[in-house]
Design a protein around this nucleic acid. Structure first.
Lengths: 239, 239
DNA sequence: CGCGGACTTGATAAGTTTCAAGGCAGGTGG
DNA sequence: CCACCTGCCTTGAAACTTATCAAGTCCGCG
């Protein structure tokens, strides 16, 4: 069921059959969340952590003036609130951008992992560490890259993350985001996102029609974004 | 020696005497790093994690065009690379903004903690989770707040973080940053930082002379920044 | 067929950067 | 002890990037 999660963790380090089985059993049930619905709300105090099994989700915060900032995009295999095991109260919400299927891992199970499965614990830690690295890349992109470079960077990131869980096909993948949502992730207005996307198209870097994004020139896209894949890097202390 | 670290972790949950002692022993030696020097360089593969004992440090990334983005500020008690235990290769560097004294915790010790000290492991996890929450706040601020609000937000954050480790005095604290460095943290040009700081002064929100920053009106500063301290919140699942 | 959501376009405004200078203060060497 | 130097802060003007406002257009779906 949570194939993507296992696949993702296997990018970090080999999993024993026993560990895989344990992970399978760790997800207690699944729920479908419809598009536009919150998977978790700000202020919630979950007693289980949520794994995204299918669909796209986004962490976001809302400001008083109605502006929204997306602070992370999530794809199948991602824990959307692994940290809620450690920090009780959600400091942000998570939204289903497409219809999503999610699974739940009771905090009790996570506690058991942290007490009796040091290797799995470390892998979950790597998961968190990679999330943090992604956050830092977003900060760099927001602070010091142009809108165009920033957008290119995000596309590079999504491509590699989706590939890591087997959700790309050659150079294309499903990117079921509206330009408005992309703007909320990049910190740009919808209008400007539109112009930036058109620039990427004019430069023959991407094709994006409907939900399908094709990377037409991976080299130049990376170059433009000054994208260094190391931060996602699945290069870890082996057990 | 690593009083600040212990103090910081105690904000998360009570530490037993045994745990405190263990932490004391975990820091193997200290080194002084002079101002402007890197504590850790990008690409390093440390075999120990570094705790900041005294001074201010900043994580940063450099872009080809020479621009620099600071992705996190660190104060005494902070681990600057706790994650290097899990993800071998540093994806960014850490700079001593002031003369710093740092201590080292061998990864071997961290591994032992992760295997035999579940409670300490969780506290270190909380540490990481709070860092991530700070990162998300930075993303929100960079994406959707004005330069003025963003600056105010950062000052609120620094005040509470320093207070948590006992480094404030009433409403004032040492902020040994140049405006250029602040700009690199906020993603703004030096000139604009200067104007923003002047606005904060004109509004009688802060006084900042030399290294001393006084918060003249905490209420209004928080209000302006739309600052919600929860994310730093030291509200955690007790052992 | 018509409606709504998403995308596109143009014009104008706002926010921020860049460039260029000047000022101030603390520290050093003559 | 003064002069100078250097790093940091400050100011103004002009340029650039991005946001906002206001219309359209396109397209899939009921």
């Amino acid at each position: 069921m949570n194939t993507r999660l296992i696949r993702k963790l296997e990018n970090f380090d080999r999993l024993s059959d026993e560990e895989k089985q344990f992970l399978e059993g760790a997800v207690v049930r699944a729920r479908v969340v419809s598009k536009g619905e919150d998977i978790i709300r700000e202020g919630d105090r979950p007693t289980e952590s949520t794994v995204l099994l299918e669909g796209f989700a986004a962490r976001y915060s809302l400001l008083r003036n109605g502006k929204r900032q997306i602070t992370g995009l999530h794809v199948p295999g991602d824990f959307v609130d692994l940290h809620s095991f450690l920090v009780k109260k959600m400091d942000h919400a998570v939204l289903a951008i497409t219809p999503c299927s999610v699974g739940f891992v009771p905090h009790e199970t996570l506690r058991e992992i942290s007490e009796n499965h040091p290797h799995l614990t470390r892998l979950l830690g790597v998961n968190i560490a990679v999330d943090a690295a992604i956050h830092r890349q977003w900060i760099v992109a927001m602070g010091r890259r142009s809108a165009l470079e920033h957008a290119a960077h995000l596309l590079c990131e999504m491509f590699l993350r989706l590939r890591a869980v087997g959700l790309t096909e050659d150079d294309s993948f499903k990117l079921p985001l509206t330009q408005a949502e992309l703007g909320d992730a990049l910190g740009l207005s919808t209008v400007h996102v539109n112009r930036v996307v058109q620039d990427l198209r004019k430069e023959r870097l991407i094709t994006w029609r409907g939900e399908t994004l094709v990377i037409d020139d991976w080299e130049r896209l990376q170059e433009l974004a000054e994208f260094d894949p190391t931060f996602l890097s699945f290069e870890v202390e082996p057990r």
